[in-house]
Design a protein around this nucleic acid. Sequence first.
DNA 1: TGTACATCAGTGAACGCGCGTTCACTGATGTAC
DNA 2: TGTACATCAGTGAACGCGCGTTCACTGATGTAC
Lengths: 205, 205
Amino acid sequence: MRVTKEKAAENRAAILAAASRLFRRRGIDGVGVAEIAKEAGLTHGALYAHFTSKEALTAEAFSLGFAHNMEQSRAWAAEHQARFDEHIEGLLSTRMRDSMEAGCPMAASASEIGRQGDAVSASFTEAFVQMADMLEKLLETTIPPRQRRSLAIAAVAAEIGAVAASRAMLKSDPALANEVLAAMQDLLKGAHKTRAAKRSRVEGG
Amino acid sequence: MRVTKEKAAENRAAILAAASRLFRRRGIDGVGVAEIAKEAGLTHGALYAHFTSKEALTAEAFSLGFAHNMEQSRAWAAEHQARFDEHIEGLLSTRMRDSMEAGCPMAASASEIGRQGDAVSASFTEAFVQMADMLEKLLETTIPPRQRRSLAIAAVAAEIGAVAASRAMLKSDPALANEVLAAMQDLLKGAHKTRAAKRSRVEGG
DNA sequence: TGTACATCAGTGAACGCGCGTTCACTGATGTAC
DNA sequence: TGTACATCAGTGAACGCGCGTTCACTGATGTAC
């Protein structure tokens, strides 16, 4: 039966939220539309009143998931007045790795995105760029702009790899999984420090 | 009908090779056992004479895929007498990114491994460690052992992230996809150079 | 070396199941008067 | 404000399809004599 416009909008949002959550946890191919609808408190038929296909739903779910995560990340950084190093520590923490739902959605789905359609790829790219932009602004301003951009881009990719790899080996070697996170923190913080120092020396000399 | 032991072994190997190839290209959930068997020139029933289940096949296919890729990588490094930097250039090349089949299998499946069973996770970990060991040996010996290990581990995770991210955004922003590979090359080569230089200064002073 | 037979890799039909999608139907909502 | 009716979000049965797995059967291979 028909529901109010507000309720319909809520249901649509609930479907997207459920899809985003389930896709991260079990992969796109690992979750059916019936389960997504059920998780949102609906039957599978209702889903097609809001989305033309699973693919369309997937694209929107990723877009929303990325945006939501980015917003949380930005809020956290503002609240804690986090600089580059602290932000890297947060992203590469065991807490982020162990939470498929609160953690980075790019890391949760990285290797699947390339097999999806253009819309999903575009969502990923947008999220990647926003993340890189955010990190870039946190870098020492003594580093030349071009280097800042390069380092920020590499840092996002590095974070994705470290979290994905750490998750992949968690079942068989938890100690090494933690070592991966720590090693990546060292690499990124070290690169930041070195590039900032180099510039200072140039300025000083 | 029965076939010779040699032919049976060949068929088994063909199934594993087909599975490894198809899983990388389309994901584990994206490929059925019938297609794998067909690609190996058999019917789906034959598959169960060699493997107890798709999961068992998956674990063996990944194990073989990782080992095969590692062997190729080692051979390439030996032939080209590649040092750390050249090896990084090879791994983070557009050629490796664009070939799902010749490229790094860890990057192709990173985010899916965590959802598979213990055996698949163990295969991934073994491949990761071997890759890290190989890179570690290519690092400047002036760098202290603990730093070498940390850098090698971070480099493998970084490579996985850069290749996976570059593939994910290839459809929507090829220029940025290339930039990711270049930025990661800079980050890793820079870290290598800096750590080697630091040590030299300490030794010199 | 030749014969008889057990072995077993491979075939292909069949299993139950869940997938994405469609559709006739329901009934409260939203709207026109 | 009250009434009549069109709208449409949501329901649930049904669709064809491909999934992973099983199994009776085939017939060449490998082995025992």
